[in-house]
Nucleic acid binder design. Structure first.
Lengths: 173, 173
DNA sequence: GCGTTTTTACTCGGATACTAACTGTCCGAGTGCTTTCGG
DNA sequence: CCGAAAGCACTCGGACAGTTAGTATCCGAGTAAAAACGC
């Protein structure tokens, strides 16, 4: 049981967008250059994030995507449900009811019991991940106190060096 | 993100075997008649349970499968890992490292952080389900204090009526 | 009657198709900024 | 100088193709109990 590969890519996008200057939206192409993989599929993933209202996209020239709310208000659970839909780990095909179908007093209580158990387990998983915000994730990731903001659109090596310098400066503070 | 359909079937088998007279092993065919679905695939699932040492199978005439240990000592987690293997909900394709590949001081710490978070969430899920034993599940399922034992091999309607009577008697006690 | 062979009823485990979900591609259409053009 | 038209750079969203994990089938081989057989 594993999340889809696209979830990992989606999470990367959110992180990317969180460190992007809010004034400059990111193009699907720029995102793709950073994350790699299939350029067209990246768009499909972006679309899911738009539908889930985690990011906003603007059409036309100089368009692109940017976060819909601050990284402090986006949890990992948000990203998971955006990509995968509501979580239900137990695949209910009614086999339990089938087995005990002629045991009359039990009727179709079978799956209900099992479903309830898994619903609890799922809830534990979800609530834990809902406490993990993108903001704290990035801070851990880059080992800094505050989220650095830069412009990923500018791809020159200089910018990359600037980020490195920025990071080390932030860490030593 | 969902468990495989075969997990549900596997769980049913364990329940079935738990209520089976320990002296009489169950044939793959008998199990199939109760659970339904594909007869040959049922065998593959049984095989997984055997490899995971949840059930034991004996070859030859009058052979079949029976539980390897008591239902009190089998947890839902055991069944999950028997069918799905070790749980790792985060699909680690290294995208995070890819994004920050030229941010030198971070190096390949990216996936480690994310992996750690999901490992915690998974652990919560697993430990909760490891506390849910098959024995208690069955008791809830059938609304009885003790697990009823019968012979599923005998398929006559009489036996089914006997079970129903047995259950109502156990409940009123 | 007793040991050996055959039959029978199972499991074992690999090779092979089928299927659905996920992944990836393609293309026509829409949107808004920018530029061009005519008066 | 100003408004309308054309061009451009993007996104939108659906239709379609490829890939992979899970599902399902088939078949030859192995194993142990029971039945049949021979002396």
């Amino acid at each position: 049981m594993q999340l889809a590969k696209s979830f990992e890519q989606a999470a990367c996008m959110i992180v990317l967008l969180a460190t992007q200057q809010p004034t400059i939206p990111l193009t699907a192409d720029v995102i793709h250059e950073r994350i790699g993989g299939s350029a067209t599929y990246i768009r499909k993933i972006i679309r899911k994030l738009v539908v889930a209202e985690l990011v906003t996209s603007t059409s036309g020239n100089n368009g692109g995507v940017h976060l819909a709310r601050s990284p402090e208000e986006i949890s990992i659970t948000d990203v998971v449900t955006a990509i995968e839909g509501p979580l239900q780990s137990f695949p209910d095909h009614g086999y339990f009811d089938q087995v005990f179908k002629d045991v009359e007093p039990v009727a179709d209580e079978g799956t209900k019991v099992v479903n309830a158990i898994f619903a609890q387990a799922d809830q534990l998983w979800l609530t834990f991940l809902s406490q993990q915000k993108i903001a704290t994730l990035i801070k851990e990731l880059l080992a800094v106190q505050e989220i650095p903001v830069l412009d990923w659109t500018n791809q020159s090596d200089d910018k990359m060096m600037q980020l490195n310098q920025l990071l080390t400066r932030m860490r030593t503070d």
